[in-house]
């Protein structure tokens, strides 16, 4: 019983015991901090490289990396125009990664958000060729219903590949919708909201890209 023991100590001894305990605690915490600093120092560059590599691998899925020879991570521009950002489903500036081949534009890669999914935001990474056609679309994060809405993942179904090669022009604007809304894109049995949200988000993003076409590779 600690209380019994301390009651027998004199005031001076009590203070001494307090400082000894506190001192030991400080030493343990200091050792922990030093250990963590060392580990952090060693792992930080590895983590940064792993994150970079993960991002580049995802880029490769929406714009094959044999089509460009620069480092898109080093060639960025930002969209800050609020009208554009609204179409991209966000209020934060959006980074556009630009790919070049022999200094000729090869495509852009950026993230867009479908804010009207069945269960929160759907985060989409997409690539667009300089001529305005989609090079690829991937859903990178979502919380749609497993087994129904999650067919937007390539791991679950090939649906997301329907976008590749399509462009958005005035004459085909109305085709950019799910079949239920008289468009070209399949919906899923039991889940229309999710594909509708993704198709809408890609369409909006293409609207922005078409509108910016002249400034995109400046």
């Amino acid at each position: 019983m600690p209380t019994m023991r301390t009651s027998k100590l004199s005031f001076k001894q009590l203070i001494m015991a307090m400082f000894t305990s506190a001192g030991k605690l400080v030493i343990f915490v200091l050792i922990s901090i030093i250990l963590l600093l060392v580990v952090r120092f060693v792992t930080a560059p590895v983590i940064a490289e792993a994150e970079r590599q993960t991002l580049l691998n995802t880029f490769d899925q929406v714009l094959p990396n044999n089509l460009y020879d620069n480092d898109p991570l080093e060639n960025q521009m930002q969209i800050t125009d609020t009208d554009y950002l609204e179409l991209l489903g966000t209020t934060e500036p959006v980074i556009i990664y630009r790919a070049y081949n022999n200094n000729q534009p090869a495509g852009v890669i950026f993230q867009t958000i479908a804010p009207n999914g069945y269960s929160g935001n759907i985060y989409i990474l997409m690539g667009v060729f300089p001529d305005g056609r989609v090079s690829g679309v991937r859903v990178i994060k979502h919380a749609e219903t497993p087994g129904l809405g999650d067919k937007i993942e390539l791991a679950k179904s090939n649906w997301i590949l329907e976008f590749s090669g399509r462009g958005l022009r005035d004459e085909n604007r109305t085709r950019w919708a799910v079949k239920k809304d008289n468009g070209d894109f399949d919906q899923f049995t039991g889940a229309t909201i999710t594909p509708r949200a993704v198709v809408g988000a890609v369409k909006n993003a293409l609207t922005v890209i078409n509108d910016m076409r002249d400034k995109l590779y400046e």
Binding site: L35, L36, V39, T43, I47, A50, E51
Partner: peptide
Amino acid sequence: IVDLTMNAYFH
């Protein structure tokens, strides 16, 4: 330490 190490080597 486990968290940082896993993040670095099993990203």
